[in-house]
Design a protein around this nucleic acid. Structure first.
Length: 455
RNA sequence: GCGCCGGUGCCCGAGCGGCCCAAGGGAACGGCCUGCAAAGCCGUACAGUCGUCGGUUCAAAUCCGACCCGGCGCUCCA
């Protein structure tokens, strides 16, 4: 059984699902006010691997991830650029999916948009007001945090110490500085929805409770996101559910941050690393491998160097895939993954999703298979090859065993070089090779002939 | 200030009481292969030690305390 760290419990615990063999997970998605960055990339990759591994383990997974398409930052950007907030949201949502698709993250089964759920949010806020845990002041409706049992569970701090640290509120009407906004009354020119408290829009923390509960139901299994969302976002989501008396997430998961040169990478710091640039400038699988080689809760260093290191490792894996391409391990082939290896993999992954340990296994197998193949021990290699393929599937790592599509003129030059080599005219052969290299292609000579690949 | 999380070889990064004189990847070096290279494969070396100082224990990278450094939250943030 898989064990995962639960932020609320502060410990690694077995994943006990609401229904047997089914997992419902809600992952906090982006606010689409700008291009996705590599931190978003890591987050989606972490939960993609979790989802794939659970599916590989036999669970039926219901994966929901929202898109926040109305928010102050979107409004501000729209204002700055003189266009409609919806237009800003549309543009960056498209970019979001481009980045996510490129790194091979499976699309969620549902991708609720905040703007489509405002009616339900108004309803929920109404219920909170009715229960006497929310109150209206001049600029909006707030949740009264002191009325929520166990507030501070995720923050791992008492209400008192949270209150001590909270910034003083400018308005002065809030009953406590930690009370948070459920409904924001609109200022002129902003997008609005009607409500019993006047036109306005929902606060950020409200959308995720309403949409997660709405799509996955009470007591769903996993709620996840970046570690920065732990407090206040997730705390406040939970507070609303608790205040309503509804069971919320059974299990909380948060992934660690990406750091660039030891520093937090974020929009506000300006050392913002764009995911789109990354996937356009390198093999996107490199980034998945980099993510896999560190633990999801640890900080992860992303620089040109670490990306390049991962790309080299991907090359090694691809070479392995090419070398073993002739081994057919499809169902009915008679070649099964070595059960001992699979159970070792499972044991490692079940320990809080230890993907780094899993990659260790994969690379060790790559070596032993190569050793077997070096001495023509095909039978010894086959079950290990099948195991590697199975593991890679669980990790969402696609290995490339296909020769690349090479332009005709490059092929022509390569053939000419072959002729020159056959004629032992190595001067001519080498100058042709230089020309091919100059065009961005690399020749791999081997006993079986020469293959061409992109540099 | 309060709370949380880290500091492991040249780089990235697992391990979190005995299986660790510490995995794996990258880089380095050597060999095989090659007309020569590159690629690929194989192998070797690199941490006598896991930020520092104390402590607990038969046993500590792993637990406890203090300190130093970095990150996160308490403010928009994945």
């Amino acid at each position: 059984m898989i064990h995962l760290f639960d932020t609320a419990k502060g410990a690694v615990v077995p994943l006990e699902t609401r229904e047997p063999q089914k997992v419902s997970m809600y992952v906090c998605g982006p606010t689409v006010d700008g291009a996705p960055h590599i931190g978003h990339g890591r987050m989606t990759l972490v939960f993609d691997v979790l989802r794939r591994y659970l599916e590989w383990s036999g669970y039926e997974v219901h994966h929901v991830s929202n898109v926040t398409d109305i928010d102050d930052k979107i409004i501000n950007r729209a204002e700055r650029e003189g266009r409609e907030p919806a237009d800003v949201a549309r543009e960056f949502e498209a970019l979001w999916w481009e980045g996510i698709d490129a790194i091979g993250v499976a699309r969620p089964h549902d991708d609720p948009h905040a703007t489509a759920w405002v009616g339900q949010m108004v309803e929920m806020i109404g219920a909170l007001v009715e229960r006497g845990v929310a109150y209206e002041i001049s600029d909006g409706v707030y949740l009264e945090v002191s009325k929520v049992d166990g507030y501070g569970l995720l923050a791992r701090q008492s209400l008192d110490s949270l209150q001590a640290g909270a910034r003083v509120d400018a308005n002065g009407e809030k009953r406590s500085p930690v009370d948070f906004v459920l409904w924001k009354k609109s200022k002129p020119g902003e997008p609005t929805w009607p409500s019993p408290w006047g036109d306005g829009r929902p606060g950020w923390h409200t959308e995720c409770v309403v949409m997660s509960l709405g799509l996955l139901g009470d007591g769903f299994d996993i709620h996840g996101g970046g570690i920065d969302l732990t407090f206040p976002h997730h705390e406040n989501e939970r507070a609303q559910a608790v205040a309503l008396g509804r069971p919320f997430a059974r299990h909380w998961m948060h992934n660690g941050f990406v750091e660039v040169d030891g520093e937090k990478m974020s929009k506000s710091l300006g050392n913002f690393a764009n995911l789109i640039d990354l996937v356009r400038s390198t093999d996107p699988r490199s980034y998945r491998l980099l993510v896999l080689q560190s633990h999801y809760r640890s900080p992860m260093e992303v620089t040109k160097d670490t990306i390049a290191q991962a790309r080299q490792a991907i090359h090694r894996l691809d070479a392995f895939a090419r070398r073993t391409a002739d081994i057919d391990s499809s169902p009915g082939s008679g070649i099964e993954p070595d059960p001992a290896l699979i159970s070792k993999f499972r044991e490692v992954m079940d320990g809080d999703l230890n993907t780094a340990g899993a990659m260790t296994l994969v690379f060790q197998l790559v070596r032993t298979v190569n050793q077997s193949l070096d001495i023509d021990d095909l039978a010894g290699a086959e079950p290990a090859v099948a195991a590697v393929r199975s593991m890679c599937q669980a990790l969402g790592l696609e290995l490339n065993d296909e020769p690349e599509v090479v332009p005709d003129d490059i092929i022509a030059m390569a053939e000419e070089r072959e002729a020159a080599r056959a004629a032992r005219d190595f001067g001519r052969a080498d100058s042709l090779r230089d020309a091919i290299t100059g065009a961005g292609w690399i020749l791999d000579d081997s006993a079986g002939g020469t293959t061409i690949r992109r540099a």
